[in-house]
């Protein structure tokens, strides 16, 4: 289907890292069902390294592909590197997303950041709170996705 790149279709048809982690060190969920997309990321962290990562996604093809690619990009990486993952990098790794689907990559970035925030909060690790200024999902959705 010409709607998506081959990379997107590959990650959609064969998503990597689907599932959950029992006793995850950090869990992050973004999106809402009303908008039609929710992403949930589970992290297993040891010595500041993301030893394992799993995701669950309710959403369109590009949302599932973005989750899959983003988890692949942070697996085995340091917390620091994971925090630096941008939605643009995810989209580029997928050989691009259609303009109205870019917000799926934003969700992937946000989900990972939220999962790391959960890990920081649980372990009393200090972090830059500005990074987590509340972003209303519907606003975000309208901004990236709107007509």
């Amino acid at each position: 289907m010409a709607l998506y790149s081959e990379k997107v279709m590959d990650h959609f048809m064969h998503p990597r890292n689907v599932g959950t982690i029992d006793g995850a060190d950090g869990v992050g969920e973004v999106g809402n069902a009303k908008c039609g997309d929710i992403m949930k990321i589970y992290l297993k962290i040891e010595n500041d390294i993301i030893e394992d990562v799993k995701f669950e996604t309710f959403g369109c093809g590009s949302a599932i592909a973005s989750s899959s690619m983003a988890t692949e990009m942070i697996k085995g990486k340091s917390i620091h590197e994971a925090l630096e993952l941008t939605n643009k990098a995810v989209a580029e790794a997928l050989d691009g997303l259609p303009a109205h689907k870019m917000h799926c990559s934003v969700l992937a970035e946000e989900a990972i950041k939220n999962a790391l925030k959960d890990y920081f909060d649980k372990n009393g690790i200090p972090y830059d709170r500005k990074m987590y200024e509340e972003m209303d999902h519907e606003q975000l959705h309208a901004q990236v996705h709107g007509e």
Partner: peptide, 14 residues
């Protein structure tokens, strides 16, 4: 309930 239509269509097409 619990799924989204576009991913459903893509997989059905496949």
């Amino acid at each position: 309930e619990g799924i989204e239509g576009e991913s459903l269509l893509l997989l059905l097409d496949a």
